[in-house]
Computed example of a mutant assay.
Amino acid sequence: MPIIQSVERALRILELFDDREYELSITEISKRMNLHKSTIHSLLKTLQAHCYIKQNKENGKYSLGLKLFERGYYVIENMDLRTNARKFLELLSFQTKNTVHLVLLDGQEGVYIDKVEGHGVTVFYSKIGRRVPLHTSAVGKALVAFKDDSEIENILTNYQFTKRTDKTIMNKEEFLSELQSVRNKGFAVDNEENETGIFCLAVPIMDHTDKVIAAISMSLSSAKVKDEIIDEYKTLLKETGEQISVSLGYGYKRI
C-alpha cells in the first residue's frame, strides 16, 4: 500500500509532542525530522490552518492545537468500553479511596483511556492518552497474560525491556514467568516496577467474544501495602472487572 509522504511527515510532526515536549521550535522540529526548515514550515502552516498545530506568538514555538483534543474526545466518547466502565471505576475509587485506571493494548504498549483520581495517593505517571510499558505495569501484564502463546510471542517480538526502577523486569524469560503467575492468580501486580512508591493491582476486561480487550488497575502507596488490604482490594478489583465484562456481554468465567 503506497504511503503519501506529506501526510506521513505531518503525522510524524504531531507525534513529536508529548507532556515532556510541549513546545518545539521550527529548528528543533527540523532536526528531529531531518528535513529542511522550508519543508517543515509548509507542513506546520498547513496543520496550523486546520487547528492541529498552534504557534506561541511570544517565542515562535509550536504546540498541539485544540482540534486534536476535539477529535480525540469524539473517539473516547463513542467507545462503549469507556462509557460502560466509567460508573464502575468511580465506585471502586470511592470504595477504596485509590486511583483506578482503564487501559487498552495498542501494539507493544498500554494506553490510558480513563482515570479516576483517588485521595489515597497521587499517581504522577498515568494520564489519559499516555502510554505505559507492558513489562513495568500491572495493567500491561493483565493485558497480555491471557492471550495465547502465539499472540504473546508476536507482541514481544523485538520488545524493549526498558528499566524504569530498580524493580523493573528486564528480560523476556522473567516476563513470561510473570505472565504465567498472572494467569494462575487471575490478577497482576506492579510492585514499584513502573513508579517508585506506587503499588498496583490489575485485572483483565473481557468482551462478548471472551477476549481480553482492556484492563483495569488500582494504584496505592507502597507504604500502605499489607496482606489483608491487598486481599480486600484484589476481591473488589476482580468484582469490578467482572461487572464491566458482563456489561460488555461477556459470559464471565472466573479465571
Rank of each mutant, 00 (worst) to 15 (best):
P2V: 04
Q5I: 08
R9G: 00
R12I: 08
E15L: 11
D18F: 09
R20I: 06
Y22S: 06
E23H: 13
M33L: 14
L35R: 13
K37Q: 10
L43S: 00
K45V: 13
C51G: 12
Q55L: 08
Q55R: 13
E58G: 07
N59Y: 10
Y62M: 06
S63Y: 12
S63Q: 12
L68Y: 01
G72F: 08
Y73D: 03
I76H: 09
I76P: 04
N78M: 08
T83Y: 06
R86H: 14
E90N: 09
S93H: 00
S93G: 01
Q95D: 09
Q95T: 08
K97N: 13
V100F: 00
L102P: 05
E109G: 02
G110Q: 07
Y112C: 06
Y112T: 02
D114S: 10
D114V: 08
K115T: 05
E117F: 03
V121T: 14
V123E: 03
K127R: 14
P133F: 06
L134R: 04
A138T: 06
K141V: 12
F146L: 05
K147I: 00
S150I: 00
I152G: 01
L156R: 02
L156P: 00
L156Y: 03
T157E: 07
F161E: 09
K167W: 02
M170C: 05
M170W: 01
N171Y: 05
K172N: 12
E173Y: 07
E178R: 15
E178F: 14
L179D: 11
S181L: 13
K185R: 14
G186K: 02
A188I: 12
N191C: 01
I198W: 08
F199Q: 04
A202Y: 07
D207P: 00
D207W: 01
D210A: 13
D210H: 11
I216A: 05
S217W: 10
M218P: 11
S219M: 06
V225N: 09
D227G: 02
E228T: 12
I229S: 12
I230Y: 07
K238Q: 09
Q243V: 00
S245T: 09
S245Y: 04
S247V: 06
S247C: 04
L248I: 08
L248F: 03
K253C: 14
